[in-house]
Each structure stands twice: as structure tokens, then as C-alpha cells.
């Protein structure tokens, strides 16, 4: 019993540390969201409520865009958010395959709230089943950073030098790169899937007609489904492998 408590602690600590780079990356994004919310006319309290309850950068920017445009139909908000973020269905489906069997419904319900792009990206790099303490460890710092960041953005809209916050725009993409590149280096199937995604994404984003019809949320979904399907047909994974 004592041993399992130690193990739980260690798992949490391991995850906690892995959350640090994500937390650093979130701060500028959250700050930007806070600034935008402030400029869109949301009060400090509404801004904080929105950012802490929805916990999505891209989603909030889309919502603020609608609010500023004076959109009145609630359905439009729900649909926009769904389109911008329906990749989370894929995330959660993929993650569900990797969770420790002992993780109960309540723990799943709580963790799912914290499952963002970056957290999903980090935890799926782990080998073997994902344990609850580890997952909650990873989730801790990014959420705190997110909440403080949106608050800071709303309070100090004009304080952060534009040159710094602009440069920080690349952090999230650099993190994604740091996850993709090592996997591409060691696995031919992943190289193939990534190459197809790059190709499709560029093609779809560069055709004006497509760009007019589909938001980038849909383009991401389409690329993901096609590239992963081709990967699955060409390189089926073995059951024995833990990936």
C-alpha cells in the first residue's frame, strides 16, 4: 500500500514536470486571449469565467470574433465552436485507447476537461498505459498558467511589448515540431503520415475555393482523417506493439 502511494506520487511528479513547457507556451497565448477579450468589451470577470470554463485558445478567439460581430443566435456559437474544435473527438478517441483500465468514469470525466492539443501531444508520447496520477500531473501547470495568463492579458493589456508577444506566437508550433520530428526520424510509417499531412494541408490551404468553403478547423480534420487512413492501410500496427 505504501509503495503504491509512492508510485502515485512519482507518477504525478513526472507528469507535473512534463507540463512545464506546455505551461510556458500557454502563457502568451492566454495573454493574447485576455487582451482580445478586453478589447471585445468583456468585463474582467466574464473574461475569466469564459477562459476558465472553456479552456480553448482557438475556440475563444472564434467566440470573441462572433461577439464583436454582434451575433445573436446561440446556435451559431455552438456550431462555430464545434467546427473549430471537433478534432477533440479524434483526440479523445485516440486517448481512450491508451488509458489505464483502472481509471474510473469520474477520473475520465475530470481529465477530459483538461485534454488540450498540447497535453494530448505530450501524453501520447508515453509508452504503455497512461495512469491517472501522471495525466493529472501533466494537466496541472498548463491550466494554472492559462488562467493567470488570461487574467494578466485582461489587466495589463498594454504592458507586454508587442515584439515579445509577437515572437511568442511560434511557441506552440515549435512544441508540435519538437514532438513530430523525433517520431519522423525513427518511424517510417509516421514519416509517411506526416508527409501526406504536409502535402494535403498545403494543397487545401492554398486553393482559394476550398479556403472559402472550409474553415481551418475542417481542413485539419480532413487532413488528419485522410493521412491517418492511408497510414493505417499501408502500415497496420501489430497488436503486440505497445504503441
Amino acid at each position: 500500500m505504501q509503495e503504491s502511494v509512492t508510485e502515485t506520487k512519482n507518477n504525478f511528479k513526472k507528469g507535473f514536470k512534463e507540463g512545464l513547457p506546455i505551461a510556458l507556451g500557454y502563457f502568451p497565448v492566454a495573454f493574447a486571449c485576455g487582451v482580445t477579450a478586453n478589447k471585445a468589451g468583456l468585463t474582467l470577470w466574464l473574461n475569466q469565467l469564459m477562459s476558465c470554463l472553456t479552456y480553448t485558445g482557438s475556440g475563444i478567439l472564434a467566440i470573441l470574433n462572433l461577439i464583436q460581430g454582434g451575433e445573436v443566435f446561440l446556435f451559431t456559437y455552438a456550431l462555430t465552436l464545434f467546427v473549430v474544435n471537433c478534432r477533440y473527438i479524434l483526440f479523445s478517441l485516440a486517448l481512450a485507447q491508451r488509458l489505464d483500465r483502472n481509471m474510473g468514469t469520474l477520473q475520465r470525466m475530470i481529465f477530459s476537461f483538461f485534454n488540450t492539443d498540447e497535453i494530448f501531444a505530450i501524453v501520447t508520447q508515453q509508452k504503455g498505459d497512461l495512469k491517472a496520477p501522471y495525466l493529472f500531473g501533466v494537466a496541472t501547470l498548463p491550466y494554472i498558467s492559462w488562467a493567470i495568463g488570461t487574467l494578466a492579458g485582461c489587466l495589463f493589456t498594454d504592458i507586454m511589448p508587442i515584439s515579445v508577444s509577437t515572437a511568442m506566437g511560434i511557441i506552440v508550433y515549435a512544441m508540435f515540431t519538437a514532438i513530430i520530428v523525433p517520431a519522423v526520424k525513427t518511424s517510417k510509417p509516421v514519416l509517411c503520415v506526416v508527409a501526406i499531412s504536409v502535402f494535403l494541408s498545403i494543397i487545401l490551404e492554398c486553393i482559394p475555393a476550398v479556403k472559402q468553403m472550409l474553415s481551418s478547423g475542417w481542413i485539419i480534420i480532413i487532413c488528419t482523417i485522410i493521412a491517418s487512413s492511408i497510414g493505417a492501410v499501408l502500415f497496420p500496427v501489430n497488436d503486440e506493439e505497445d504503441q
Binding site: A94, T177, I180, V194, S197, A232, P236
Partner: peptide, 24 residues
């Protein structure tokens, strides 16, 4: 299902790639 299993294994890389390129 083997196809779905493989599909979901590749989803993270496909998603991260198509979010990064060309937006970066």
C-alpha cells in the same frame, strides 16, 4: 478492429502536422 487501431495511432502526428503547416 485493426484498421481503427492503426488509424488512431497515427492521428496525433497527422493532427499536429496539419495544425503546424502551413500556419507556422
Amino acid at each position: 478492429n485493426k484498421f481503427l487501431q492503426s488509424f488512431l495511432t497515427y492521428v496525433p502526428y497527422a493532427v499536429l502536422t496539419s495544425m503546424t503547416i502551413p500556419e507556422v
